[in-house]
């Protein structure tokens, strides 16, 4: 009896150990994670006639817009790749990052009501947001592959190389960066919302700092080091390089992005878990 007396399942205190990521708890709520993703997908097309087809229409329109506008009008260098393919490659990855980031960076604010009523592993929500963005990314990717196959058949220069195999790594880095930065931002805006007004603006600036609509090779060699400090730069460049053979690829750039991603995810979870404990009192 005395031995079991000290064995508790849950101990709630005001302070949490600093390096407790509480990932076991996320695992326990894995079914909830899947249901959240399903819910967010389902609610998009509830009560529509076209139903799940809407998931394809938006990326399709994006593709058309990029084909028409950038294929004909823009005069920015595309390193010799067909412009459509160049822009589409960049925007596919960027949209994934931007959507996952902007949605997960308001997760506290958007879910204040449910957080105040019931406890579940809070990390499940931002994770579900990133997974939901990933689903949308896959559809946009499908569009990209269709366009890509078309260009492969008409243009001998468009061929994938070995670096295309890095694709899963690129997806993980992008998802991790969006997740980590999202957690950081939502934690920092939980109490003082000032920063909140800058999120959309910041994402727009970040877009121009990333070689999405221009190749990294266009940046002056002496400034390139600053451009590559942006962890998304290597991701987008590697993707373009792997599938078209044109672009800048350095193992060191990619390693930097991967390291940066791991750091930001850990930092994000730590801060998120700390804020989460008393978040309900300050919203």
């Amino acid at each position: 009896m005395q031995a079991t007396e000290e064995k508790w399942d849950t101990i709630i205190t005001s302070k949490a150990p600093l390096f407790d990521f509480r990932l076991g708890e996320v695992w326990r709520y894995r079914d909830l994670l899947v249901l959240f993703v399903k819910r967010d997908i389902a609610q998009v097309y509830k009560q529509t006639i076209l139903g799940p087809l809407w998931f394809f229409i938006q990326p399709f329109i994006t593709t058309i817009v990029f084909t028409v506008i950038f294929g004909n009008l823009a005069e920015i260098s595309t390193d010799g790749i067909p412009p459509v393919l160049f822009y589409l490659a960049g925007i596919t990855f960027w949209n994934f990052f931007a959507e996952a980031l902007s949605k997960s960076s308001t997760v506290f604010r958007d879910n204040a009501n449910i957080f105040g009523k019931v406890y579940f592993s809070r990390l499940v929500l931002p994770l579900s947001i990133v997974m939901n963005s990933f689903v949308k990314f896959c559809i946009q990717l499908l569009m990209f592959i269709i366009v890509y196959v078309y260009f492969m058949s008409v243009n001998d220069a468009v061929r994938p190389n070995a670096m295309a195999l890095l694709f899963p790594v690129l997806v993980i880095i992008t998802a991790g960066l969006a997740f980590g930065f999202g957690l950081l931002i939502t934690s920092m805006t939980a109490k003082y919302r000032d920063l909140y007004f800058l999120i959309q603006f910041g994402i727009q600036l970040w877009f121009f700092a990333t070689p999405v609509v221009y190749p990294l090779s266009e940046v002056d060699p002496e400034n390139r080091i600053y451009a590559i400090l942006n962890p998304m730069a290597a991701v987008v460049e590697t993707f373009k390089y792997g599938f078209t053979g044109v672009g800048t690829f350095e193992w060191s750039y990619l390693a930097y992005s991967a390291g940066f991603m791991v750091f930001i995810v850990l930092l994000g979870i730590l801060l998120f878990n700390k804020i989460e404990k008393t978040f309900v009192d300050i919203i």
Partner: peptide, 14 residues
């Protein structure tokens, strides 16, 4: 129910 943490003290649950 762990919705918010106490300011001081400990809660133990089984």
């Amino acid at each position: 129910s762990k919705i918010t943490a106490p300011t001081t003290g400990v809660i133990k649950l089984r």
